[in-house]
Amino acid sequence: MSTTSIRSVLVCGASGFVGRRIVRSLREAGLAVTAGDSRTQDFQQDLSPEVWVPRVTGFDAVVNAVGLLRDTPRRQLEPIHHRAPAALFEACARAGVARVIQISANGVTQSPTRYATTKRAADEVLLRLRAEGRVDGIVLRPSIVFGRGGASAALFMNLARLPVLVLPRAAVHAQVQPVAVPDVAQAVLRLLQDGGPELVTAVGPRALSLSAFIGELRRQRGQTTARVIPLPDAPSRWSARLGDYVSSQPWSSESLALLEQDNIGDAAAFAHVLGRPAVPVEQFVEAAWASDL
């Protein structure tokens, strides 16, 4: 790992679920953090490096935590995930920013969804700049991130209240390796301070099925084991398509496609980045949900 003195950090997407925790973690460590909002720094329209150069000049590091699950009438994946971050990363290289961290997602390499392809496109821009020696860029790819304030975490906690779970059949069997949001934020701090490899996968210590994950959340809430009913593929797709029309909730065709593939990684490698083991799923409610009350 390369050591660079990082004191001032611009966090783009600071008002989001992961971004808020990153800002808190960096400030608690004594770093000077400027919280950028993807709505005021318009990721929908600010698509040229020239716009970004004056915004990033003077910062030691930049973290891009801007994310969108799917297209909405007002916000589109291609500019927000790909074109604006690409301009941001090029601006960082021109302005002499020492380190850039891109918050991406695990599984984007294989997934054909628009969410994954647009995230992957931005990742590749930053990795190319790193390979060219123009900026110390690191792509952090978390698995499912759990914590209060996360839309998917809220969905899982709501499902954990139900004595009977009706889940898409493919999602029941796919393996996930959820990670607590405080660990993602801590990883960003460590990578800013110490540097790291070009790609880091943020995962919890244990892989398990989605139904087992929800069952574990039920156990932590003091509830008995739920009955799981696998929903056949066709009704699963229909329900996801209905979700496509309600942009305020996380269930959609995009999220179904993401849940149908395994979302796992090397827990030991992530623990090395953290400097300790990640929070186990058996402690998620206490460490990443109740602790944020």
Rank of each mutant, 00 (worst) to 15 (best):
A91Y: 11
V135R: 01
S5G: 09
A171C: 13
V33L: 12
L242C: 09
A122G: 01
D136Y: 11
D136S: 11
F284R: 02
V23I: 12
L162G: 03
C12P: 07
D292Q: 14
E254G: 01
T224E: 00
R24W: 08
A212M: 09
H173Q: 10
V56L: 13
V97A: 09
L191Y: 06
A271I: 10
P85F: 06
L127C: 09
V184T: 05
V56N: 07
H272N: 06
T3H: 07
A267V: 03
Q76I: 06
A87R: 08
V125P: 00
G13F: 12
F270M: 05
N64E: 05
L256V: 06
Q261E: 03
R190W: 06
S111V: 12
D266S: 12
E198H: 05
A171D: 11
S291E: 13
G137I: 01
C12I: 15
F89C: 07
S291C: 07
N106G: 02
G133M: 14
A187L: 10
Q41N: 02
P178C: 09
R221L: 08
A174M: 12
L10P: 03
R161S: 07
A121I: 08
A287E: 05
G222T: 07
E50N: 15
L47V: 01
A95V: 08
A98P: 07
V33A: 05
V108R: 08
Q249E: 03
H82A: 06
R70M: 04
V279A: 06
R206H: 13
R128F: 09
A268D: 11
A226W: 11
L199W: 12
T4F: 13
L10Q: 08
G243L: 10
T224N: 03
S247V: 10
Q44F: 07
V279I: 15
R190P: 00
A207G: 15
R206T: 13
G58M: 03
L167V: 15
E50K: 15
E260M: 01
G149E: 07
S25P: 07
L259H: 02
G58D: 01
S239I: 12
A61I: 05
A257I: 05
R74T: 08
L231F: 03
A98I: 11
L167K: 11
P163S: 02
R114Q: 14
F17T: 06
Y115P: 06
S8C: 09
T225S: 00
T4E: 13
V97C: 14
R39Q: 14
Q249D: 01
A240C: 12
A290V: 04
R141G: 07
A269S: 02
N263H: 06
M157P: 07
R237E: 07
S2F: 08
L129A: 04
S255A: 09
S252R: 10
P230I: 14
I80S: 12
E90K: 13
Q102C: 04
T4K: 14
E132A: 12
G137F: 05
